[in-house]
Amino acid sequence: MIKKYYYGDYGEIEGGVSSNKSETEFPLWEVFIRSKQGLDHKHVGSLHAADVAMAMENARDVYTRRMEGVSIWVVESKHIHASNPDEAESLYEPATDKIYRHPTFYNLPDEVGHM
């Protein structure tokens, strides 16, 4: 059986804290902001909100006060699935000695210009 890991799961499991959240507490949301110069939305932090409308307004109020962004994404944290840090060895280390996967062995003709 595959165990599903949620963002934020690990701290709770390691710390032995129960993940039973109080029913009165708003769910957690992750906030992504695209800056004026940027093309991509970057994760800037998280917040609590009762629903998507409140999450959007809270994100505006908490994370764009200093002209950080021109676009906001919010997603409820429970929808983000995280890789397991215990599997880091098998997931990432095999790539470290495979430098041929970097396209540095090709000689580009001048006509191509900057790639």
Binding site: F26, D61, V62, R65
Partner: peptide, 8 residues
């Protein structure tokens, strides 16, 4: 009531 509304 919560941090986010305090800031708002």
């Amino acid at each position: 009531p919560i941090l986010e509304q305090d800031i708002a």
